[in-house]
Structures are given as C-alpha cells and as structure tokens.
Simulated assay, not measured.
Amino acid sequence: MGYQRVLLKLSGEALMGEQGYGIDPAIVQAIASDVAACVADGTQLAIVVGGGNIFRGLKGSAAGMDRATADYVGMLATVMNAITLQDGLERAGVPTRVQSAISMQEVAEPYIRRKAIRHMEKGRVVIFAAGTGNPFFTTDTTAALRAAEIGADVVFKATKVDGVYDKDPAKHPDARRYESLSFLEVLSSELEVMDGAAIALCKDNAIPIVVFDLFGPGNIGRAVAGEPIGTRIHPA
C-alpha cells in the first residue's frame, strides 16, 4: 500500500447520502467495506467524522444560540456518527474503537494518544469523536491535529466532489480541478478545502492532504494505495 498510517476525514453530510438529514445505512456499509479492504492490506487507519448531518454549530450560532453551546451540541452529534460508523465497521469484520474528546465512558473510550496508536498497531480502526473537546474548532482542525499526534503519513478528506476546484463546479461548468496544490497556494487563494487552522497545522507538520470523491467505488482504497486521485495538497 502507498501509506502505512492514514487519517480519513469524513463529513457528517457524506453519511446522509441523498437524504436531507440523518444517516443512510447503505452509505455507512459502503464506507465500511472500503475501509475493511484497506485494513486487510495492512494499513493503519484512523477516522475523524463530522456531525453536520445532525447538527452544525455555526448554523446554531447563526440562529441565535450561544456559539460555545452550539459547538458542544455539534460535538455530541459527531459521537452519534462515530458510534454508527463503528457498528458498520464491526459488521464488516473490522475491530474498531471510538475515542471521544468529551468523557462518556459508557459509549466511548477517552482520547488517549498512546492508546490510539497501540490500537492501530493491533489492526484496529480508531474513530476520533467529539472534535478537540473545545468549542470554536472544526472537525477539519481535529483531523489535522489528530493526524499530527498519531504520526499519520497523510490526511484524506473524502467529500462529495472529486477534488479541489478554482470555483464551485456545481454552479460553474467551466470550473477547473487542480491535480496538486501547495499549502501556500491554498492559503493565498483562500480555496475552501479545509479551514485555515487545519491547513496551517498540516503545513507546519508536513502532512499532505488528499481531497477526493468518497462515493466512487473503491476510492478509499485507491487513495490509500497512493494512486493519483482527486487533488493532492503538499508542502511547497
């Protein structure tokens, strides 16, 4: 395989598929099948999942909620997604552990860096839930932070589009997809790949990011194998 230890970032919206809300079991099982194939080939894999299919802190804040309170509700939504994803992975034969940045020992382990690494070394997938445990930080930043902490070789951001474009391809038929970008190009062009804190963390720790289409069959395996897929963001 192309990479030994990877972090996969899944948006909450990806889990709802074509539904307007919640979790599509078929999407969960498709992700689980792809992840199972990667783990079977020896890849150590961790996942950070968002919560936007259930609740998004920024939208709650815009509707009048206190921002910190809204973010905590969003963190709890990521735990719901993580536990659902854990169930799908284990039904696909992949031993999985959920580690939460907010203590809830009845349903998840606390986040402990060395324990997470040990789980991966034993062939278990680790799902990091509840963001960083702090408001005002996105799950993109969580993904970058956890990737640095566990020594991941790469961050894979699985999305609904097949890479990074110079403008929204859904609105502009002439949008151009980038095959590769430097971190500085992403920051200077203000491309909406991940938030600025996440990009800066990956840049400072020389962790490349690969943005690709989650819904192409076998795309997770192709990305992990190092095939040219989506857009690769790298140190200059």
Results as ranks from 00 to 15, higher is better:
83 I>Y: 04
133 G>A: 03
71 D>M: 03
7 L>H: 10
26 A>R: 14
19 Q>R: 13
107 V>G: 11
202 C>E: 07
9 K>R: 10
40 A>D: 00
76 L>M: 15
102 I>C: 02
196 G>D: 13
79 V>S: 04
41 D>R: 02
49 V>F: 08
87 D>V: 11
192 E>D: 13
198 A>I: 12
43 T>Q: 12
108 A>S: 13
69 T>V: 04
154 V>Y: 06
75 M>P: 00
205 N>V: 06
30 A>M: 13
148 A>Q: 06
125 V>W: 12
107 V>N: 09
183 F>R: 10
168 D>N: 14
157 K>R: 07
195 D>G: 09
64 G>M: 01
38 C>L: 04
193 V>R: 02
152 A>M: 09
68 A>Q: 04
172 H>P: 02
12 G>L: 00
209 I>L: 03
151 G>V: 13
51 G>T: 12
77 A>G: 03
44 Q>D: 03
51 G>F: 07
98 V>Q: 13
41 D>A: 03
116 A>Q: 10
87 D>C: 02
31 I>C: 02
124 R>S: 15
39 V>T: 10
48 V>R: 11
218 G>M: 10
207 I>C: 02
234 H>P: 10
27 I>K: 15
78 T>W: 04
90 E>M: 15
47 I>L: 09
209 I>P: 05
41 D>E: 09
185 E>N: 13
168 D>C: 05
136 F>I: 01
70 A>I: 05
157 K>S: 00
128 F>P: 09
230 G>R: 10
113 R>K: 12
72 Y>N: 02
17 G>F: 14
135 P>T: 05
203 K>H: 11
209 I>W: 08
40 A>C: 00
86 Q>H: 14
152 A>T: 07
150 I>C: 02
185 E>P: 14
189 S>A: 15
121 E>S: 10
15 L>V: 07
55 F>M: 01
75 M>S: 05
40 A>V: 00
28 V>A: 07
38 C>V: 05
94 V>D: 12
235 P>F: 12
186 V>S: 11
20 G>D: 11
86 Q>N: 13
93 G>H: 08
15 L>A: 08
196 G>T: 15
218 G>A: 05
90 E>P: 12
109 E>S: 10
144 A>M: 08
78 T>N: 00
173 P>Q: 04
4 Q>L: 09
168 D>M: 00
43 T>I: 15
14 A>V: 08
233 I>Y: 08
175 A>C: 01
10 L>F: 11
135 P>M: 07
76 L>Y: 14
44 Q>Y: 07
46 A>Y: 07
88 G>M: 14
220 I>K: 04
145 L>M: 14
137 F>S: 08
109 E>H: 12
220 I>T: 02
141 T>P: 08
233 I>C: 08
156 F>R: 01
227 E>M: 13
93 G>A: 06
2 G>T: 11
89 L>S: 07
12 G>K: 05
210 V>S: 07
69 T>R: 04
21 Y>M: 08
202 C>L: 05
129 A>Q: 07
93 G>N: 03
3 Y>L: 12
232 R>M: 06
103 S>H: 08
199 I>A: 04
205 N>Q: 05
199 I>M: 10
159 T>R: 03
103 S>R: 09
115 K>D: 14
30 A>K: 15
232 R>D: 03
178 Y>A: 06
122 K>E: 12
28 V>Q: 07
232 R>H: 12
60 G>P: 00
28 V>T: 15
67 R>M: 01
134 N>F: 02
152 A>K: 05
123 G>F: 13
209 I>N: 01
28 V>C: 09
117 I>M: 15
